[in-house]
Design a protein around this nucleic acid. Structure first.
Lengths: 197, 197, 197, 197
DNA sequence: TATGAATGAGCCTTCATTCAT
DNA sequence: AATGAATGAAGGCTCATTCAT
């Protein structure tokens, strides 16, 4: 809008496109590297994967947490948005909760090192940690409340605690063929159900 | 009983008291530092905490795995020995399993970073990881089998998976007042119980 | 001629002047430190001498062998190229051999620690050792063969052995005013001459 | 003889014997380790080879040079003593010189790292260096003077320089089957001979 | 006296981060 | 804006040397 000059305008615009392209490339590269080497991967590795310079990473994402948040924001948002939808489309709130947890688990299990971010001591990932919880705890709370109201589950478990538990169960799951995080989460959710009678 | 496993009898490698004191100090220091900074803590930090030189660590524990194993051996052993005892003294096998898991959780929760060792990708801690599983999986299997035989739990969950799950639930538990690992483990064990009817 | 072997043309890896300056400074510093402390000198010492950080060395020369080779490459090349020229310009092949050896000695004597690289047990300098020999042994062989053919020297000595001998005679020469490596090499070459009659 | 007391005597005597035994064991061990790993071998390795404690080495040989000197003293002495004998028993002084050098080479070549001690910059081995030269240079001078007097060799080369040259030619010889130090030393000595005519 | 435990300087190497180009 | 060169802190490890036992 404000670029009308011939040269300055074109330059500014093309620059902006480059920047956007770089940002996208960085997010893709970071996602790929995180899967391979975890969220602690060397910055260089990410830059190399993206085919950009080191400085470009720091320009777009001053801290590592900024990058991680950006990488996973879309998926976190999708997960948050799925909550109400599942509640509306499922037979019971407990069923919705189960499905929502399943989706959350799918997300975590496919992102190496991501589950660890849910933990309280994720040093250096505070912003990311906070983002996760800010976005997801309300949704989870809504599901828990509904299932409690319907009498399907025992009351008392807070969403934060459930999410931490689910997150923890997913830690390291992708590397171990003998460990099925989904199954254990299933047991956890089953244990949450009000005992018959 | 197991106190003398290493230096059985008077033919111990070293009888020097200061050396033994240092070894003990190192184990205590390592335990403390592991709580604070995890099992990847700098060797220097452990040496400083113990008030000994760097070389002293390398003398007593040539590799990091040696140190970690030594730090937790006693407690792992105690946990292993508790299995049969609980089976004998509890009302039902499922109750024994629950108590044994409780004891295991108590152990893990008080030793930060330890739970992480149960995970499969504990790079560089293979020896420790193996020690844990070699020692505890058989005990846990015995308890699970008994509870399955008594019809109290659904069959099919392997001890390794249960222990990994419990271990995971305990990761980071000690630092977060809002997260009660025991409670979540309780839900997991409850979920394991055969649904009434 | 050989100046541009590495960064041939304008498509050089890096055009940054400061980087080139640093690389040059590192080569000079390494050469100087090698004279003082041998080719096993601490990396830090070389970095300090060059006035650059530690990482800069590792960037330009990932391994110590890379650095040593780079330090001496030009001179080795010059020496190799001088062989045929001397053969063409000298009165007899034996005279050419003598002059070539003189040049080689001049080279070695002014680069402390370099002579040691000719030795067989230069642990960790295999690449450098190989470079030296690959480059110079053929030249020396040519000179020896010519001098043998002209009947000026006794046959049988291989170029490798002669070069090792000359190299050895030069070890430590620059630090000792009472030791004249050139003189001793002169005796060696004289001894190689076919006895009159 | 002077120990007559029952306890004190036995103790003192046995102690003295132990000490001698240890010193001998250390010399043998050091000689063996020097052959294997050079004169820079870790002190620990020598102590281990000798089956004594670290402190024992330092008691008997406060510095590394002390140990090296002790290890080679006998052989240096033997070499020194061989000079006059060879002069007396050989046909000509030049022949005696050649034989003496041969013996010296035999000595150096069989002791890894020893030849390097002849060099001027043998940092930390100054005492050893000095011992070598003090002992051998006079002998070598005597041989050179005699051969000069007999007109067999060109005059002017000092004993120190010859010995340095021979020592240098022997550096690293034991590890390289393609390098025959004796042969090269032979050429050097041949080159020393007065040219016919 | 002998032992070997302890110390800590010193080296190597990696990688986050800054900044000249 | 982008690049990647440079920096240097951080951490692992090895040994020479001292000194309590």
């Amino acid at each position: 809008m404000s670029e009308r000059d011939e040269d300055a305008g074109r330059a500014a615009r093309s620059t902006r496109k480059d920047a956007q392209r770089n940002k996208k490339a960085l997010l893709d590269a970071a996602a790929a590297v995180f899967v391979t080497s975890g969220v602690d991967a060397p910055v260089r590795a990410i830059a190399a994967e993206a085919g950009v310079g080191l400085g470009t990473i720091y320009r777009h994402f001053p801290t590592r947490a900024d990058l991680i948040i950006a990488v996973y924001r879309h998926q976190v948002d999708a997960c948050a948005e799925a909550g109400p939808e599942l509640l509306a489309s499922s037979a019971t709130p407990y069923a919705a909760l189960g499905r929502w947890i399943d989706q959350f688990v799918d997300f975590l299990v496919t992102k190496h090192g991501l589950a660890a971010v849910l933990q309280s001591d994720s040093t250096g990932f505070d912003a990311l940690h906070a983002y996760f919880l800010d976005r997801l705890v309300p949704v989870c709370t809504q599901l828990l409340d509904a299932a409690t109201a319907s009498g399907e589950i025992r009351p008392g478990l807070r969403a934060y605690e459930l999410m931490r538990g689910v997150g923890n169960l997913c830690v390291g799951a992708e590397n171990d063929p003998d460990y099925d995080a989904r199954r254990l989460v299933g047991l956890l959710v089953a244990g949450l159900g009000r005992p018959a009678g």
